[in-house]
Design a protein around this nucleic acid. Structure first.
Lengths: 230, 230
DNA sequence: GTCTATACCCGGATAGAC
DNA sequence: GTCTATCCGGGTATAGAC
């Protein structure tokens, strides 16, 4: 453990320099990585600062210098993950512009959303946040805000625009978005919340999402003489 | 603490006898009550057997004689709560028989379901189960089974019957039930999962559920010439 | 800023009297 | 079956040298 302290060199004797000056930043990142793994595996209370210490390769005192307490470390680590993973989501307006028709655009977007939210690490994180929400209400707020900024908000705008153009008839876009999400990603998400070991079945996911979008369009698609998808 | 051990008597000297012979059963129940409160308040790992000991009024050794370990106590206590509270739900077929029309029946049933699932204690229990699901996968299975037996299963039968009678057109009843639940109770349930402190707004709940049922009926209601509720 | 070593406390579980 | 008293490991956090 003391051996790794000196500057590492590769087999040619060249020093391995990750980011020129700051060894501190690298240690901080090592702490964050180790802490995230431990919190996801054990939950907040059962997670051990000793384990995080050993996995990160730094000393316990260093961790406390950086983060102050177990609670603050938890908040720092968990808060950082969520926005980063949600950033992979392309805005729904983009999907609409690229797709030939509305149904295809909605299916594409909700499928991409599902792919992100159903990733095992995200499901794990979600369970962790839900389980600790009474101890850390901030995380609930954060989760809601990120979800809204990254997904629901843009979808609301999109539905509002389409209604203005007469392509949809959505009286309450905010509620409609909640319905759309609930009917598509919400269904497999609920299943995998309570059955973590079950892998995602691609065919069933596609079927569920397609049916959810059809449900949505049967209500909000242009009504005169329109009886749902062929 | 030692004083309560002898048989309690009221002010007339009459002994207070709760259930003739079995003091053991009463203690067992006291343990369960205290344990449930502690687990719901603290989560599994942070819950203290000492606290449960003090709150239940029995000694720690007695708890271990009855339940063997903290894990088994947790399973026994949490497993017992769920079916008991779900039992309040009247079967959906009953709601259908009593209601003048299908929409009313669906609104009535999903509203009742929401009232049960949104009760603060149930939301608390649900968060607890979700958070500890990697440690206790049995609870996830149990949650799913109870939900299915008490709600989804009967709803599937109902939709199948109505389709056979020609009053609905539901090609996949199992999926349709998931959609119906997701579009109605699922929406406020999700919100309150991440915002525990927010109280349930009755008017908004009614609005959400009504809109969810309308969404469902727009897709699965009799299609020829039917364009949604007036 | 970072380490080693330690203070201090509370966790779950059990032994043995009655 | 139930109690009291205790074991023993591991928890978070910090003091003090470098």
């Amino acid at each position: 453990m003391g051996a790794e302290r000196q500057d590492a060199t590769d087999e040619y004797g060249m020093p391995i320099i990750p980011a020129p000056g700051d060894a501190a930043a690298r240690k901080r990142q090592a702490i964050i990585d180790a802490a995230l793994a431990e919190f996801l595996a054990e939950g907040y209370s059962a997670a051990s600062m000793d384990v995080i210490t050993n996995r990160s390769g730094v000393s316990k005192a260093t961790i406390y210098k950086h983060f102050g307490s177990k609670e603050r470390l938890f908040l720092a680590v968990v808060s950082g993950v969520l926005p980063k993973t949600y950033a992979d989501l392309t805005p729904p307006a983009r999907a609409l512009a690229d797709a030939p028709d509305l149904r295809t655009a909605l299916v594409r977007h909700t499928t991409e959303l599902a792919r992100i939210l159903l990733r095992p690490e995200i499901m794990l994180l979600r369970r962790l946040v839900i389980g600790e929400i009474d101890r850390f209400p901030q995380l609930g707020q954060l989760w809601y805000l990120v979800t809204y900024d990254m997904n629901n908000g843009p979808l609301v705008e999109m539905l509002t625009d389409l209604t203005a153009k007469g392509e949809l008839h959505v009286p309450d876009p905010k509620l409609a978005v909640q319905q759309l999400v609930a009917c598509t990603v919400g269904i497999p998400q609920l299943v995998h919340t309570f059955a973590p070991a079950t892998p995602v079945d691609d065919a069933e996911l596609a079927r569920t999402i397609g049916a959810g979008v059809d449900l949505f369009l049967a209500r909000y698609g242009r009504p005169p003489g329109w009886h749902g998808p062929a």
